[in-house]
Amino acid sequence: MFFKIFWIIRYILYSVFFKKAGFPGYLGRPIIILGMNKISIGKRVRIYPNARLEVHGKDAALIIEDNVGISQNVHITAGGILVIKKSATILANTYVTDIDHEYEDVNVPVLQQEMSIKKTEIGENCFIGMGVAIQAGTILGKHCIVGSNSVVRGTFPDYCVIAGIPAKIIKKYNPETKIWERANL
């Protein structure tokens, strides 16, 4: 716990470079941050060691709302407006992006082709398991649970469990019975 005092101090020192930084919060070490002035962080945000936060593009932004936990080795890349809503948890070794690389022109290397930006949003109170890839164009509703090592692309409604490669809904919360029920697969 003693080391977290240094993480809090680091957060305070870095806060002047962010677009917005709510307090309290902390940043583990080491951490890579590109485009700090385009990153908004809410209150009680915890970012653990080896995270990588990147914002590319003139009008791009990364918005991390209140009470978000981002574990070790998480890589988040924004080329548009990427939002992680309040109380979301993202476990270790996860990748979140709103960028796809174009590849159609076989005479041009992929990294030299245009990037395609697709709206990506992690909903309120979502829980993202370890090793997940959240691809460009993914919209997770409120309280979605994503199983470990899933590859996610698409729009998913509130209160569902998704898993797999590609990820599919495997359970939904039934508000009438107040039970998580298996989805018809």
Rank of each mutant, 00 (worst) to 15 (best):
D66W: 02
H101P: 02
V132T: 07
P109T: 04
H75I: 04
E114M: 14
T138V: 11
N73G: 00
L82R: 09
G131P: 04
E124I: 03
V110C: 10
C126F: 01
Y103M: 02
I139E: 08
K142I: 12
N125G: 09
I139V: 15
H75Q: 04
G141M: 13
D105Q: 11
E104W: 06
L91G: 00
G129M: 05
I76C: 00
Q135T: 04
D105W: 10
G69I: 08
K86I: 00
S71F: 09
L82C: 12
V96Y: 03
S71V: 01
I70H: 05
N107Y: 15
V106N: 12
A133Y: 06
L111C: 00
I145K: 10
E124Q: 06
A136R: 05
T94M: 08
K142F: 09
H101W: 12
G80N: 05
A92S: 15
L111D: 05
S71K: 09
Q112L: 11
I84E: 10
M115H: 14
A133R: 13
T94E: 02
D100H: 13
A133M: 10
M130A: 03
H101F: 11
V96W: 02
G129P: 03
K85Q: 14
H143Y: 08
V110E: 09
I99N: 11
H143L: 01
N67Q: 08
Y103F: 15
E65C: 04
T120L: 00
G141L: 13
S71L: 03
G147S: 07
V110D: 13
V106K: 15
E114R: 15
V68Y: 05
Q72N: 11
G147K: 10
H75D: 03
V106A: 14
E121I: 07
L140E: 03
P109M: 08
A88E: 06
E121T: 06
N125V: 00
T138I: 10
M115Y: 14
G137H: 06
K85R: 14
V108K: 15
A136D: 03
T94R: 11
V83H: 12
E104M: 06
V106F: 15
L111S: 06
N125C: 01
G80C: 04
I145S: 08
G131R: 11
V110R: 15
N107R: 10
E104Y: 12
V68A: 07
V132E: 02
A92W: 10
T97A: 00
I139S: 09
K86N: 05
V106H: 14
G131H: 05
V108S: 04
M115P: 00
G141P: 13
D105V: 10
E121L: 13
I128M: 06
A133L: 04
G123L: 07
E124H: 03
E102P: 00
G131S: 07
I139C: 06
G123P: 06
K85D: 12
N93K: 07
E65Q: 14
C126I: 01
D100T: 01
Q113I: 01
A92Q: 14
A92E: 14
V132Q: 04
S116L: 14
N107G: 14
